[in-house]
């Protein structure tokens, strides 16, 4: 299986960190992984997005143009990338910030109050980890254990105090997608 993932949102929503956590967890799971940001002027102010590939096989191009997993953290991201999703692919929509519905009928769509759930935990900047919980709950992608290990690795030293909150955000996202709609 090869997951070709695009993560997209505003700068400041932690998109690149989300991507890095997926790649790191994939690596811990023993998969081939790549992570690449859409670097450049568009990362300032406007949208930020990155491509992550998690695969059982050697990875060809790391630049994803037709994802089978898309996380849309804001409306411009949904508008820009929905049409590029592979048939049968997954779409995770941040319902808190996106008031328009999706249009594709040939994909699996999950609506999740990503920003709102993060707000309930006291920090909207946890939205990326809520989304990560949503992804492992709905798509699988990487193992929960690997994600926790990745978070521990990244949130060490001065950032260690943030780990608990991040794990709560992960749970919140994962639980929410498991509940009946």
């Amino acid at each position: 299986m090869t997951y070709e993932i695009i993560l997209a949102g505003f700068g400041g929503q932690g998109i690149l960190f989300l991507g890095k956590m997926i790649a790191l967890a994939g690596m811990i799971d023993g998969k081939e992984v790549s992570w690449i940001p859409s670097y450049g002027p568009e990362m300032r102010g406007g949208t930020a997005n990155c491509s992550v590939v998690v695969s059982d096989r050697r990875i060809g191009t790391p630049v994803v143009t037709h994802p089978n997993v898309l996380v849309a953290m804001n409306r411009p991201s949904l508008e820009k990338f929905e049409s590029t999703i592979q048939p049968g692919g997954h779409l995770l929509i941040n319902k808190t910030l996106i008031e328009i519905p999706h249009t594709r009928q040939d994909i699996d769509v999950t609506y999740l109050e990503i920003t709102a759930l993060a707000g309930e935990l006291g920090n909207p900047r946890l939205a990326n980890i809520v989304a990560l919980g949503g992804l492992i709950g709905r798509v699988g992608l990487v193992s929960r254990d690997a994600v926790i290990e990745a978070l521990k690795k990244e949130l060490s030293g001065k950032k260690a105090a943030l780990l608990d909150l991040n794990l709560k955000a992960l749970d919140a996202g994962q639980q929410a997608v498991l509940l009946p709609a």
Binding site: A23, E32, W35
Partner: peptide, 10 residues
Amino acid sequence: DGNLGQMMEP
């Protein structure tokens, strides 16, 4: 190219 500089891999 810039991609190889910017991308992360194991």
